[in-house]
């Protein structure tokens, strides 16, 4: 969807932009909800306009997760902040094997944000929620003075339920586990960098933002005893592998050449002096699976909409606990460390 495709359901008092009153709890707030959020998000629970939503939860443990989204620019190749905010929390729930059910959305809007942008973002969120089969049941909007925000910040919180007998979590990572990544890495981070102010490079990189709950549901259904799942967002694959090696007290060995990287991403990383292993993803998962189930898990993931380029990239070992090691095409090894902060483009 593009911004051009979106039209405001009714003119909001002919206001083209967000004003302080949209967060003031008065008529402007009510109009924003009634004419922008409700038409986009729908749903009877939201339409109740009560102070809290009442949820019906099936049997099982409840998974609960929250995430905040502050991406800039708001619109980027392959998506926008709204889709990210839905998919991000959907994926966090799915990584525990949960079926995501309900979500809250909290907006912090900067005065002056075009309402057409907000409407576009809300519609994207609604479409993403529909695709992931989750219901947006409650929300909140605040407005901050111009200059005190980056257009829009979004927080989403989600709940879901974990089917009985499913135990997916970092503590189950065990030596012998095979590590699968569900597709190419680094797409989201490079897509964002390619359009960020001050970074004048052109790349046809597209964000991979996508919901992964259907993929996880099929893995769970296939009864493959998946030990752990993670979505390698900020810090990229390297951070995820390091976190899991540290928390499980195991070592990880990956085959550098087996990690799928799109050509355009590899090329952009070469130019910028970045390592795709440290670049963010928004629609990929890393699965830790017992060796005897690895091939089947790979074929399940590959049969999914967002898993066609999945690959086995390495395994968990008992040696060098807490450390991630990559084997290079030359047969040598290197340690894949955590980055201190952001990856910094090199000078030359």
């Amino acid at each position: 969807m593009t911004i051009d495709g979106w039209t405001c359901p009714i003119p909001l008092r002919n206001q083209p932009n967000v004003v302080m009153g949209h967060g003031g709890g008065g008529m402007l707030s009510a109009e924003l909800i009634e004419h922008l959020f409700l038409p986009a998000f729908g749903g009877t629970r939201l339409a109740d306009m009560a102070d809290a939503a009442l949820l019906d939860l099936p049997q099982g443990r409840v998974a609960f997760s929250t995430d905040s989204f502050v991406v800039r620019p708001l619109f980027f190749p392959g998506g926008n902040i709204g889709e990210l905010a839905i998919n991000g929390t959907v994926n966090d729930l799915a990584m525990r094997g949960a079926k995501p059910l309900y979500m809250s959305v909290g907006f912090i809007l900067e005065e002056g944000l075009p309402l057409s942008d907000l409407g576009m973002i809300a519609e994207s969120m609604a479409a993403a929620a529909k695709q992931a089969d989750v219901e947006i049941v409650t929300g909140d909007t605040k407005v901050v003075d111009r200059g005190h925000g980056d257009g829009i910040y979004i927080n989403t919180t989600g709940v879901g339920t974990v089917p009985a007998g499913i135990d997916i979590g970092p503590s189950r990572v065990t030596p012998g586990d095979v590590i699968i990544v569900s597709g190419t890495i680094g797409d989201h981070g490079i897509a964002i960098m390619s359009v960020r102010e001050g970074l004048g490079f052109e790349a046809d990189a597209v964000s991979d933002t996508a919901p992964l709950n259907a993929m996880v549901a099929d893995l769970v259904e296939a009864d493959l005893d998946v030990h752990a799942l993670r979505d390698p967002t900020r810090g990229g694959l390297a951070a995820t592998l390091n976190e899991l090696a540290a928390s499980s007290g195991t070592g990880i060995v990956i085959d550098q050449d087996a990690v799928p990287v799109r050509r355009v991403v590899a090329a952009a990383c070469e130019i910028l002096g970045l390592d795709p292993m440290y670049v963010a993803n928004e629609g990929k998962l890393v699965a830790f699976v017992p060796e005897e189930h690895a091939e089947e898990a790979l074929s399940v993931i590959r049969s999914e909409t967002y898993g066609g380029e999945a690959a086995i990239i390495g395994k968990v070992v008992g040696e060098h606990p807490g450390m991630v090691v990559a084997t290079t095409p030359l047969g040598t090894t290197r340690v894949v460390d955590m980055q201190v902060g952001e990856q910094l483009p090199r000078i030359c």
Partner: peptide, 30 residues
């Protein structure tokens, strides 16, 4: 995380290169 000198900062710095990539002896091959 706590560089005393610039060589520990840039990925081109010899100290950072040693720390990040060559810090420990070979690990088991795949």
């Amino acid at each position: 995380r706590t560089p005393l000198g610039a060589l520990m900062v840039s990925s081109e710095g010899a100290c950072a290169a040693y720390f990040h990539s060559g810090r420990f002896a070979r690990a088991v091959a795949l």
